[in-house]
Design a protein around this nucleic acid. Structure first.
Length: 880
RNA sequence: GCGAGAGUGGCGGAACUGGCAGACGCGCGAGACUUAGGAUCUCGUGGGAGACCGUGGGGGUUCAAGUCCCCCCUCUCGCACCA
C-alpha cells in the first residue's frame, strides 16, 4: 500500500460531492437552533494568501463542528468588491475595474472552493453589484431623512496618492515618526478643506460606548480600543468674556474636565485654526507675529504637529479675557498643542495643574497659581517643578470654594457655572462624524442631486439604484472620474425638473461592509436590504472571525449601522456580533542576501547546514520573523501548499501551529508533520477497514458498558476514545482551542497504534466493536479539521456520506476514566515516588500503601509525618 | 506617558478551580526495514556526573506556586498634547 494518500483525487471528489448534493445549503428552519458563523469577507485582490487560509480554516472548523452538533448553520461568503486597487488597475493597465474585479473574484472563488470550505455559495454577495449597492443608497436616503447623513464643509484628511478623502479611523499612525498615514497605501495624509457627506455616528456615541459593556465575548483589547476611540469625557463649557469684545465675538468658550481648577487659570489658549484668532489680532501690534506663527504651524501636517514630544509653542495675541470667577484679566495666547476639532478649540490654561500648560507657562514666563493642595500639604508655588494633576486634595486660593475636595469642587463649581449662566455641564467625545465621501469611481454613487433651484435633493427611492456609468475615463488625476461623465452628471431635479447635476463622489467602501452580514440573511431580497423575518431568524452573528486591524474601523462602523438599521425596523438586534475572534498574523522568518536583498524561501538553499543564496552563493542572514509580505518576500503560497500536501494539510497546520488569536509562525517542517499525521490516520483506518465496516452507531453507553470480561484492550480502546471525545469537544465548545484539539487527535492516533499493535488483529467481537467505535469517532472528530480525508475514510469504512452531516460523537464520562489512579507521592513537597492504585481507593488505603513504598520509607526514615496532605486522585504529600 | 497582552526546552507551543512542568508537533539522537532513504516504523530527547537545579529577575503566602500577592526587568500591540 502506498505510504501517501492521494489528496488530489480525494479532495476534488468530495468538493464536487458537497456541491452536487447541496450539503451546505441552508434555509430558515424554526425547528432547529441556528448558528451564524461568519468570517470577514475578502477584498478580491487577486489571490488568497496565508492569512486568508488561516481565518477561513478557523471559521470552517466552527461551522462544521456546529453543524455536526445539530445546529442549522449559516456560513456565507462574498466579496468586498469596491475599492481602489481595481481603479488603479484600470489606470495602469487599462482594464475596467469591473472586469478586473470579476476576474479576481472568479479566481479566488476557485481557490476558496479548493480549500473545502463549507459555504452556502447560493448566498454569495458582491458589493459592487447594483443589487447590493442600491441598498447602500437606500440606507443613505433613510439616514438623510433622519438627519443621520448630512453635508458640511470641513477640514478633512486627504491622501495625495489615493487622491481621496479618508475618515479619521482610516488615518493610521506611522511607526517611525508618528505621522498620520493612509490605511491603504501608507502615504502621509494632509489636511484639506472640502464639502463632504457625513454619517452622524456621534448620535450613537453613547449607545456604542454602553454596548461595549455587553460585548462580554469580545477580546478586551478591541473593546478598550473602541472605548478610547469614542473617548467620552464629562466636563463643563464655560464662557470667558473678552475684555474688549470684537464684532460678534463677546467671549471665548472653553471646555474643561477640571472646573475645580478655574481659580488657577492664568491664561487662555486658542487653536491656531480658530477664526477667533484673526478677529482678536486685528489692528494690534502682535498681529504679524501671530499670523506668522499660525502659518508656520498649519504648514506642518497634523500628526507632526501633534507628536507628543513636540515642544509646546505659542504666541501672545495682545488680547485679554476675563475669568468670570475672579474678574481677573488674563492673556489670550495661540498654542500649537490646542486642537481645533476637540471640545471648543480653546482652553483655559491652568499651569499648576496641567502639565502642558505648566510647560507652556514656564517657557513664556506666565504666572503659575496653585489652587489644589495635595493631601500631605507639601505643595508650594515656589517649589513646583511639574503640574500637580492628581485629583486628590483640597482647594486653596479659590474664594468660597476653598477647603472643598476636588470632587466636591467639581460638582459645586459646575453647578455654580450653570446658576450664573456662564456655561453648562456637558459631555465631550473624541469620536467625530464619519466622512463617507470619496473622490473615486469604483464605489457606491451617493444618491444626491444638486438642483439649481431646490439645492440638495435626494434621489427618489424608486429611481434606485443610481448606477455607475460604465464608460469612464481613467486618468488617475484630479478627483472622481465621474465628474467627466456628462450623461451621469447632467440630470434634472426630481422635485422641480430644473437642470441639475449629480453628486460625483462615491461612498467609502466601509459602508458596504458595515451591513453585509445582514444581507447574507436574505441575499436576494428585493423589497429591502434585508428581509426582516430572515434577519430575525439568523441574526445576530454567533461567531465572527477576522483580523485585529479592524478593531476600530469595520467593527465600529458595523455596530453603528446595525443600530441604525435596528431603528429603521430592519433588525431587532443591538449588536451584530456576539463572539468575536481576532486571529493573529501569519509570520515567517525573513532571508537577506547582501547582493540580492530580501530573498524568497525558494531562492535560499541549504548546504552543510548553512543557508546560501541560490544566485550568488553568499551566506544568507536570517532576519526576524515578521508578517508575511511581498516586500520582505517571506511568503508561503497557499497554492503550492495545496498542490503538494492538499487543502486538509494546509487547514490542519493553520489550526495546529498556534492558538487562533496569536501569531502563527510558518514552518515548512511543521506542515510536513501535519501531512505525516494525516497519512498516519489514512494507514490506520485502511488497515482497520476490513474489521470496521459495519453500520455506524453512535458510541452510546448502552452498547459499551464495560462488562466483567472486557479485555484490557477493549477498555484501553474505550478509554482512549471517550477521553479524546471529551477533550476535543471541550476545546471546540468552550475555548476555540483548535491547536490543543488537534494535539488530542494526534495523541489518540498514537495511542491507537500502540493498542492495536503491528498486526492490528482483533480477537473478539467486543474488541472489534471497540475498535470500530474508536475508528468511527476518529473520523468524525477529524471531519471539521480535514473534511476531505474524513469523507473518504468514512466512505471507505463502509458508511454512507456525508460525514459532514453526521452527529458529533458523544462521550461517556465513565468510559473516559481509568480503572487505575497514578498517585504521585511527595515528601516535603518533593516528588519521591508514584503509586498505582485501583480507582476509588480510600485515603487510608492509599496512605498506607504509600508508607510501604520502599522509596518513601527511605525518605521518611521511620519518622512520623507532622502532616499528611491527601488530594483525591491527585497526590499524597508527607510533611516531616 | 496611558491602555491591553506576553516572557516556559534547540524551535512552535501544552498545563482545568494552586497539586507529577514541558502534552502535541518540529528538530535532534539511536535502532528496525531497506540497493538507497530526505519514505515508514520503534525507542529516546529540559539541564547536570551527581546531591540536585529548572517556567524573565527579586521577595512573599502555602504542605505545595508557571498558576495567588508585592516590587522590578524585557518584549509586542494599540493610543498618544483630547483640555
Amino acid at each position: 500500500m502506498s505510504a501517501f494518500y492521494d489528496h488530489r483525487t480525494i479532495e476534488a471528489k468530495w468538493q464536487a460531492y458537497w456541491e452536487q448534493h447541496g450539503i451546505f445549503h441552508v434555509t430558515e428552519d424554526p425547528s432547529r437552533p441556528k448558528y451564524y458563523c461568519l468570517e470577514m469577507f475578502p477584498y478580491p485582490s487577486g489571490r488568497i494568501h496565508m492569512g486568508h487560509v488561516r481565518v477561513y480554516a478557523i471559521g470552517d472548523v466552527m461551522a462544521r463542528y456546529k453543524k455536526m452538533r445539530g445546529y442549522n448553520v449559516l456560513h456565507p461568503m462574498g466579496w468586498d468588491a469596491f475599492g481602489l486597487p481595481a481603479e488603479n488597475a484600470a489606470i495602469e493597465k487599462g482594464v475596467h475595474p469591473s472586469t478586473w474585479t470579476q476576474e479576481n473574484v472568479a479566481y479566488m472563488k476557485g481557490q476558496l472552493k479548493r480549500m473545502g470550505l463549507s459555504y452556502d455559495w447560493s448566498r454569495e454577495i458582491n458589493t459592487s453589484h447594483p443589487d447590493y449597492y442600491r441598498w447602500n443608497q437606500w440606507l443613505f436616503l433613510k439616514m438623510y431623512e433622519r438627519g443621520l447623513a448630512y453635508r458640511k464643509r470641513s477640514a478633512v484628511n486627504w491622501c495625495p496618492s489615493c487622491e481621496t478623502v479618508l475618515a479619521n479611523e482610516q488615518v493610521l499612525t506611522h511607526e517611525g515618526d508618528g505621522a498620520g498615514v493612509c490605511w491603504r497605501c501608507g502615504t502621509v495624509v494632509v489636511q484639506r478643506e472640502l464639502e463632504q457627506w457625513f454619517f452622524r455616528i456621534t448620535a450613537y456615541a453613547d449607545q456604542l460606548l454602553d454596548g461595549c459593556d455587553r460585548l462580554t465575548k469580545w477580546p478586551a483589547r478591541v473593546l478598550a480600543m473602541q472605548r478610547h476611540w469614542i473617548g467620552k469625557s464629562h466636563g463643563v463649557e464655560i464662557d470667558f468674556p473678552l475684555a474688549e469684545p470684537v464684532g460678534e465675538y463677546r467671549a471665548i468658550r472653553i471646555f474643561t474636565t477640571r472646573p475645580d481648577t478655574i481659580y488657577g487659570a492664568t491664561f487662555m489658549s486658542l487653536a491656531p485654526e480658530s477664526p477667533l484668532v484673526e478677529a482678536l489680532i486685528q489692528g494690534r501690534p502682535e498681529a504679524e507675529a501671530v499670523r506668522a506663527f499660525v502659518a508656520r504651524t498649519s504648514r506642518l501636517d497634523k500628526a507632526a504637529r501633534l507628536a507628543a514630544d513636540r515642544e509646546k509653542e505659542g504666541v501672545f495675541t495682545g488680547a485679554y479675557a476675563v475669568n468670570p470667577f475672579t474678574q481677573e484679566r488674563i492673556p489670550i495666547w495661540v498654542a500649537n498643542f490646542v486642537l481645533y476639532e476637540y471640545g471648543t478649540g480653546a482652553i483655559m490654561a491652568v499651569p499648576a495643574h496641567d502639565q502642558r500648560d505648566f510647560e507652556f507657562a514656564t517657557k513664556y514666563g506666565i504666572p503659575i497659581r496653585l489652587v489644589i493642595q495635595n493631601p500631605e500639604g507639601t505643595l508650594s508655588e515656589a517649589t513646583l517643578n511639574a503640574a500637580y494633576e492628581a485629583e486628590e486634595g483640597i482647594l486653596i486660593n479659590s474664594q468660597q470654594f476653598s477647603g472643598l475636595t476636588v470632587q466636591a469642587a467639581q460638582e459645586a463649581i459646575g453647578h455654580y457655572v450653570e446658576q450664573q449662566g456662564w456655561g453648562r455641564r456637558t459631555v465631550n467625545y473624541r469620536l467625530r462624524d464619519w466622512g463617507i465621501s470619496r473622490q473615486r469611481y469604483w464605489g457606491t454613487p451617493i444618491p444626491i442631486i444638486y438642483c439649481e433651484v431646490c439645492g440638495i435633493v435626494p434621489v427618489s427611492e424608486q429611481d434606485l439604484p443610481v448606477r455607475l456609468p460604465e464608460h469612464v475615463p481613467f486618468t488617475g488625476r484630479g478627483g472622481s472620474p465621474l465628474q467627466d461623465v456628462t450623461e451621469f452628471v447632467q440630470t434634472t431635479c426630481p422635485r422641480c425638473g430644473s437642470p441639475a447635476r449629480r453628486e460625483t463622489d462615491t461612498m467609502d467602501t466601509f459602508v458596504d461592509s458595515s451591513w453585509y452580514f445582514l444581507r447574507y440573511c436574505s441575499p436576494q431580497a428585493t423589497h429591502a436590504p434585508v428581509d426582516e423575518k430572515a434577519a430575525s431568524y439568523w441574526m445576530p452573528v454567533d461567531q465572527y472571525v477576522g483580523g485585529i486591524e479592524h478593531a476600530v474601523l469595520h467593527l465600529l462602523y458595523a455596530r453603528f449601522l446595525t443600530k441604525v438599521m435596528r431603528d429603521l425596523g430592519l433588525t431587532t438586534v443591538d449588536e451584530p456580533f456576539v463572539n468575536l475572534l481576532t486571529q493573529g498574523m501569519v509570520t515567517k522568518e525573513t532571508y537577506w542576501c547582501d547582493e540580492h536583498r530580501w530573498m524568497h524561501p525558494s531562492e535560499v538553499v541549504k548546504t552543510n547546514g548553512k543557508l546560501r543564496c541560490r544566485h550568488c552563493q553568499r551566506l544568507i542572514t536570517v532576519g526576524r520573523t515578521e508578517k508575511m509580505s511581498k516586500s520582505k518576500k517571506n511568503i508561503a503560497s497557499p497554492e503550492e501548499l495545496s498542490d503538494r500536501y492538499g487543502a486538509d494539510t494546509a487547514r490542519l497546520f493553520s489550526l495546529f501551529a498556534a492558538p487562533p488569536e496569536k501569531d502563527l509562525e510558518w514552518s515548512d517542517s511543521g506542515v510536513e508533520g501535519c501531512y505525516r499525521f494525516l497519512n498516519r490516520i489514512w494507514r490506520l483506518v485502511m488497515d482497520m477497514v476490513p474489521q470496521c465496516s459495519v453500520p455506524h452507531s453512535s458510541p452510546d453507553r448502552s452498547s459499551t458498558t464495560p462488562s466483567a470480561n472486557s479485555t484490557a484492550r477493549v477498555r484501553a480502546l474505550q478509554r482512549a476514545t471517550h477521553r479524546t471525545i471529551k477533550k476535543v469537544t471541550n476545546d471546540l465548545e468552550h475555548e476555540c482551542q483548535f491547536n490543543t484539539a488537534v494535539a488530542a487527535l494526534m495523541e489518540f492516533v498514537n495511542e491507537l497504534y500502540k493498542i492495536l499493535g503491528e498486526d492490528k488483529a482483533l480477537s473478539s467481537p467486543e474488541e472489534a466493536e471497540a475498535a470500530r467505535q474508536a475508528i468511527h469517532s476518529l473520523i468524525l472528530m477529524l471531519a471539521p479539521f480535514a473534511p476531505h480525508l474524513a469523507e473518504e475514510l468514512w466512505a471507505r469504512a463502509g458508511q454512507s456520506p456525508s460525514v459532514a452531516g453526521q452527529c458529533w460523537p458523544s462521550f461517556d464520562p465513565q468510559l473516559a476514566t481509568s480503572e487505575e489512579w497514578i498517585i504521585p507521592i511527595q515528601v516535603n513537597g518533593k516528588l519521591r515516588s508514584k503509586l498505582i492504585v485501583p480507582a476509588g481507593s480510600s485515603r487510608e488505603e492509599i496512605i498506607a500503601r504509600a508508607r510501604q513504598d520502599s522509596k518513601i520509607a527511605e525518605w521518611l526514615q521511620g519518622r512520623e509525618p507532622r502532616k499528611i496532605i491527601y488530594i483525591e486522585t491527585k497526590l499524597v504529600n508527607f510533611v516531616v
